[in-house]
Structures are given as structure tokens and as C-alpha cells.
Design a protein around this nucleic acid. Sequence first.
DNA 1: ACCGCACCCTGAGCGC
DNA 2: TGCGCTCAGGGTGCGG
Length: 301
Amino acid sequence: MPELPEVEMTRRCLEPWLLQRKIARVRTTASSYFFATPPEQLARRLRGRTVQMLSRHGKYLVALLDDGSRLVLHLGMTGQLFVEQAQNPRLSQAASKTASTAPFRPDRHTHLCVEWEDGGPKIFFRDVRKFGKVRWLAPGESDPRMTRLGVDALQVKASDLHSVARVRRIPIKSLLLDQTVLAGVGNIYADEALFVARLDPRGLACRLTRAECARLVRALHRVLARAMALGGSSIRDYVNPDGVDGRYQTERKVYQRSGQPCVRCRTSIQRVVIAQRSTHFCPNCQKESESERGPRTNLRR
DNA sequence: ACCGCACCCTGAGCGC
DNA sequence: TGCGCTCAGGGTGCGG
């Protein structure tokens, strides 16, 4: 599932293929949940436009067009955005074993195809489960979901996190996944960051001390930076727009490792469900917040 | 304020 | 081999 590192990698890979090129034609599949803007309207609005910038806000990608309108893309869980001439994206586990070098042909899951006037490599948006979204915004129009996004996970400071956390009586894991608090963090990196910060995902956000928030932010930055350096994680369907698998999954310490030994203490990694999401942690080295263990007894020196 | 659940969707993995 | 079932999972919206 694409989270901040995967979306940012996608942005960096894709941008050079988009900039200053005029859209000749947009092909889509039939109207569906995927199209927040109906496909016919989308095709009409995009024809003749030029992309001036591709930016990222949390897990959203935004293409700024020459008439001031914008194309908003969200990869959802299984979305793949890639260029035609790239190596073939992995279409499925089965396909990857056989036809991984064959040129890509749009299939029934390829919901968007952008063709350019200069005849350059096409851009494809493929999404098996259609949890992704594509929306066109008129100049000045805004998307309420994007407006409500919290501070980007790469930019967040310990003080930001602490001021939000202290008033929320929810598990820390839930707080990290809340896009209105922190934009870009998803299930994988939330679990990994909590492991690095040695914090129990079930602990209440309001119990986090300043020091713990600082530790968590450091862990988050470290984990996200490392993931980007390795080209993201290819846990399920992610491949970057050049068709290359990310390699971060080989560095996972807890995510989808339940039952396996903790890399620090060999305790069996546990899986619980928090906020309807599977959560993986080490019950031994991820401790609840200091302030949750009652008043400090440092009067006794 | 917070929780639980339904919904969107398809493929993987299971038991038979 | 193949059928039918269940489940996963990000984001959102709703009712409690």
C-alpha cells in the first residue's frame, strides 16, 4: 500500500515525464467510484492542457495545469502510476514470474491513460481495487480532504505532535494514521516508527511526554527517509514508475512479522487490531508511555 | 470525542 | 482441478 515514501518516489520518477508536455488525449475505463470527477468530464478538461508541476501533499499527488486547474491523484491501496516506456510493473504475483519484461498493455485495471501531443511515453494509472481516486479541480477550487490534511510527516516537529497528542484520548497508532493530524503515514510506517521509538502502539496519545514525541518524530523521519532511499516498500502492489520494486520490505522490523522473533530481543512479534487496522509490535521492547505508569517516584532520589 | 462498522473492490488463500 | 467462501485493507461517512 503506497504511503508517503512510495508516493514521493512516484512523484520524483514521474515529474520529468510530465512537465511541459501537452495532453493530446485521455483514455479511461467506465465511470466508477475511482472517478471523483466523471471520466468524460475528466477527459474533456485535460485535453490540450500542459502539466507545470507535480507536487505531493501527504499521500496525494497534485498536477498543476497551465490553466490553473489541478488534477488530484490518490493511489489508495493498490494504485500504480507509471510511464509506458518503463520496465513493466508487476501486474500480479503470477505475471511477475513470467512476463516481467514484456511491454505494458493497458488491462481492465488501467483506469487512466494519458497520451501526449509529442507522442512521448504514455502515463498509466492502474488500480486493481479502485480504492484510488482521481479528481479534477477547477482553478481556485479545493478538495475538502486535502484542505483538512495535517502537517506533512516529513516536516512534522516534536512540538507539533505533542500539542495535538496531548488532547487526544486515542491509541498512538490511531493518531499516527489520522491524516488530519499527520499527512502521509500509513499502516507500515506507523508500525515501524513505533518500533524504532520503542512505544506501545496501544498507549494513549494524551499520555505521550514531550521527550517521547521527540523520539517518535525522530523515528518517523528516520524510517521514512530510509524507505525513500530504498525506493519504498513493495509489500503488495507497489512498484515505482520505472517498474522497479522498492526494497524497504527487507528492512521491516515488525510489519507483517507476527510470530517471528523481535530483531532486538527475540520476543515473538505480536499482532493486534487497532482502529480496524492490523498492528504489529514487540510486546517486550515497546513500552507504554512513561507518564502512563503512574506518578514518577523520583522524590526518593 | 471516540468507537465500531459498512462501504468501495478484487485477488489470494483456504476448505472441500 | 475447481468451486465458493472469507478476508484484507486506506479512507470516509454514519450511527451510537
